[in-house]
């Protein structure tokens, strides 16, 4: 490594994004190891051979080893909990496509909840605008959070578009509703 030509090409772990040699300090060591074994068998054998593991262990005192062990277990548990939580919110959270009547025959369509699926709603809003050739913007919701507001009655089109283009969002979690509350208040 010493006199390699610059810039050095560094490979990063596909799971935790750190250089593979630091995977052991992340919470997802197990997954990282599997990933490395599959993608870069050379490096895997270098980093995870018995010899290296033993050497790593012997560098620390017994006491410190125990503490490190405990710590890494805690970290792993936390990482697992976090990923489980993420999966759960993904499974349970709903995307609402609302058709809101604005002025008798005119409608706007509001889309809520896309951010739970790891989408950047600003970008999605831009895409909607491009796809449907209408105004599309991110607006703040009074209760906190943001939604995408698209001009025109596009609830069905948006439903199809989201199903088609954003595979992360399961179709069952999409819901179309018609919002009439506003009209009542007006009338």
């Amino acid at each position: 490594m010493a006199t390699a030509t610059y810039p050095i090409q560094v490979t990063y772990c596909g799971i935790c994004s750190l250089p593979p040699e630091y995977c052991e300090f992340g919470g997802t060591t197990k997954k990282c190891e599997e990933w490395l074994e599959e993608k870069l068998p050379d490096m895997h054998s270098k980093l995870y051979s018995q010899e290296v593991l033993e050497q790593n262990m012997s560098a620390l005192s017994v006491d410190a080893q125990k503490r490190a062990e405990k710590d890494s277990q805690k970290k792993a548990a936390r990482a697992e909990a976090a990923s489980a939580k993420l999966a759960e919110t993904r499974a349970t959270s709903k995307v609402l496509i609302k058709r809101i009547e604005r002025n008798k025959r005119k409608y706007v369509t509001a889309v809520q909840g896309l951010e739970a699926f790891g989408l950047d709603i600003k970008k999605v809003a831009k895409d909607f605008g491009k796809k449907f050739a209408t105004g599309s913007s991110v607006t703040k919701v009074p209760g906190g959070g943001e939604e995408i507001t698209v001009q025109g009655d596009l609830s069905d089109d948006i439903f199809d578009y989201v199903v088609e283009n954003y595979k992360d969002v399961p179709e069952d979690n999409l819901e179309c509703i018609e919002d009439k509350k506003k009209k009542k208040a007006d009338g």
Binding site: Y6, P7, Q9
Partner: peptide
């Protein structure tokens, strides 16, 4: 830094401190 590692003033820590 990973691409140009030798170009910065560097110190090293022991293994115990990494975590």
């Amino acid at each position: 830094i990973h691409r140009y590692p030798r170009c910065f003033p560097t110190l090293r820590i022991d293994r115990g401190a990494i975590r």
